[in-house]
Amino acid sequence: MNNKDRILLVEDEDSLAIGLEFNLSAEGYQVTWVNNGKKALEQFNAGNFDLIILDLMLPYVSGYKVAENIRAKDPQIPILILTARTSLKDRLKGFEIGADDYLTKPFHLEELLLRIKGMFKRKKWYQKSIENMPSFRLGENEINFQNLTVRTGQKSFQLTAFEAILLKYLIDHRGIVVSRKELLEKVWNISSDIETRTVDNFIVRLRKYFEPDPDNPVFIKSVRGVGYILIDR
């Protein structure tokens, strides 16, 4: 493990934050803890962090706003939302604004640590992987994996880190059926029995971006009962 990995922990519950700080430090991460949204943005702008653990219900600036602000400045930094809000709506909103992972309280310590480890691993795999293929053309879309932008004709838009990683994985394995289980293990670095719906949510978003008709996909197709396949025409 890289001892220099720095985590910004944004959590306003003192007792939970103390325990998290203890555990993350024990895993060799360097942790900075702040207890409100305002301080989170100040710290983010001042420091150089590798990962953010973010609560949603925060004083002064909400977790969503913090995530949006951070995303606008850094499209690649992994953000893990750690919250007591369990509704599908909150979850989707979290991913919508660019969170890479969403874990609900109460959580298992082991699972949290695994997810964090997975996020770091993924970040490194991605950085290595784009050295060989910095951009890719999918239909009318020109994908730049370095700054995570997609150009479609005159328009361009931004991908989140997770979307880019998933897309990269599918492109690297284009023409081959990739199971949800594999995606969860390789992209999310989590065991597949946790949440397969996460994968589906992301696929839906990728289709919205790249498919001329998201309901009848031509690039990212579902293979019933197995998973997904990316077809490059």
Partner: peptide, 12 residues
């Protein structure tokens, strides 16, 4: 919130 903190300390 308190439940997750208790769980965290026990697991720690």
């Amino acid at each position: 919130s308190p439940l997750s903190s208790i769980q965290l300390y026990l697991e720690t």
